[in-house]
Computed example of a mutant assay.
Amino acid sequence: MNPPDLSTPEGRAAYRAELRKVAQPARLTGMGLVVVGAILSLGAYPNWVITLGWICFGAGWVALAVALVQRNRYHRRRISGG
């Protein structure tokens, strides 16, 4: 894998678009779980629903952290040319 060409605006734009695709399902899942968890946790629901909301909220942040690590690892590997 060759390092990306970051010397031109087109190369930087192409690399940004490539990075946006890395771990996209994990990022979308994480954001969805955070939103659902926040809605369930802040409403006037039974206790079990509020607990489920906090579980969704926590799982969403874990998914976002995993996506961040995956993207950083991909970026390091891609820049080094490996």
Rank of each mutant, 00 (worst) to 15 (best):
V22E: 01
G11K: 01
G82A: 14
G82N: 12
L40N: 04
L42F: 08
Y45L: 13
N47W: 12
V49P: 01
G30E: 00
A13M: 02
A23Q: 04
S7R: 11
L64P: 04
I39N: 09
V34L: 13
R27Q: 04
C56M: 11
V49R: 04
H75M: 09
T51G: 13
T8F: 08
Y74M: 10
A63C: 14
P25M: 04
A65P: 00
A59S: 13
A59W: 08
S7N: 09
V36Q: 09
E18H: 04
P4C: 10
V22G: 02
P4H: 02
R77N: 09
A14T: 04
P4A: 10
R12H: 08
Q70M: 15
I55S: 07
G53A: 08
R78D: 01
A59N: 06
A26N: 03
V66T: 11
M1Y: 10
T8D: 05
V36N: 04
R77Q: 12
S80M: 03
A63D: 09
G82F: 08
K21M: 09
P3R: 12
S41Y: 04
A23G: 03
T8A: 05
L64Y: 01
L6W: 06
L40G: 00
A38L: 07
L6C: 10
R12S: 06
A44Q: 14
R12T: 10
S41I: 04
C56T: 05
R77A: 14
L42S: 15
T8I: 07
A13S: 10
A14M: 05
A17Y: 02
G11N: 05
V22D: 01
G82S: 14
R12F: 08
